[in-house]
Design a protein around this nucleic acid. Structure first.
Lengths: 193, 193
DNA sequence: TTAGTAACATACAGGCTGTATGTATGCAAC
DNA sequence: GTTGCATACATACAGCCTGTATGTTACTAA
């Protein structure tokens, strides 16, 4: 009974995983608009029927792919070694973040197509559901402890996050990771109280 | 002769202007993917034939709209009063930039759909063709004069530009302009040598 | 075993894009 | 001025794609 119920579940899980995997590959390679549902299912051996059975539409599959990517990135970041000094924690965190974002395709999914297809607010919700906390908490702790200046937390988080994101994009496009980190480090340094 | 040749030119210019205007309106309102060429030409009284006569495809019209927007933004920024002290120039420039980016729809065109549809490199080319120089030159001057730390110029420009862009987006989404400027100011301050 | 439901596959309707083709209008030279 | 060409458009068409409706098979619970 357990086993029979599992069989259906496994079947579903396997199909969804296949669709997510093919989706990630194609969305990364050709973008959301450039990927058609026929070629998507062709990559899995299924038909469009299966796709539309499991996901409301192409956008919903894309959202699932993006959410999975955001989760993976968040996990990579949360395994960060904890650092005592808040400012050092921010420095280490930014390096970890840039490394996490260097997974091929991740910048395209999370920073280019994601915001355009799903919208900024839905992207914010996705990030909120996973690890976006890290930067905000890091900044908050650093402000509380007096390590860096006190600034409006929400906008500061958004703006520094955008700085890191662009760093990740530049690195993905060939810029030097060390150069990017030098700028990050200088900016964080400059925020000391 | 001049006059007769002008008539054709005027006709072309008028048609293109109408397409650009309708394009801007619809692309801002419904995004690139959400805007169809039939509704685009319906907004001008023309037909799709005219559109495809003047532009290679929908993407080319979108690129023209984006380029025009980038140019308008650049012009608004270049009319900035010149300031002597490099660091003050950066401060004033950032306020002018945020104001320029507060034109409705501009953030969507230049920061959301533009990069996703045209790609980062084409967007960079567009910006290079217009006013992106401002920030780069401001940073360069500030570094030369010793006002701020010496950092890799290219990435620094990209990353600070992204910081400003996100500030513009946050403001466009309801955040306080003063909060955003406080962060900008703090970051610039912190970069002093 | 049987009824019901979930997991697919197939078939279809509508819309959209880009191109090919047709038409009219300006323009330049004779 | 009319003849011929090029430019500016309009119309028609082919192909693809999306989402839905309908059919079929595989489970599962009673």
């Amino acid at each position: 009974m357990q086993q029979e119920r599992r069989r259906q579940q496994d079947r579903t899980d396997g199909t969804r995983a296949a669709l997510l995997e093919a989706g990630r590959m194609l969305f990364v390679e050709k973008g959301f608009a450039g990927t058609s549902t026929p070629e998507l299912v062709a990559a899995t051996g299924l038909t469009r029927g299966a796709l539309y059975h499991h996901y409301a539409d192409k956008r919903a599959l894309f959202a699932a792919v993006v959410e999975r990517e955001a989760q993976a990135a968040a996990e990579a970041i949360e395994t960060m070694p904890s650092v005592n000094a808040p400012l050092d924690a921010l420095r280490v965190g930014s390096r970890v973040y840039l490394e996490a974002m260097s997974v091929p395709g991740r910048t395209r999914l999370l920073l280019l197509d994601g915001p355009a297809v799903l919208g900024l607010s839905e992207m914010d919700e996705i990030h909120a559901r996973h690890g976006n906390r890290t930067l905000r908490q890091g900044l908050e702790a650093a402000m509380e402890s007096g390590a860096i200046r006190r600034l409006p937390l929400a906008v500061t988080t958004e703006m520094l996050g955008a700085l890191f994101d662009r760093a990740a994009l530049s690195v993905a496009q060939g810029a030097s990771l060390e150069d990017a980190l030098a700028v990050v480090s200088a900016v964080l340094d400059g925020l000391r109280a």
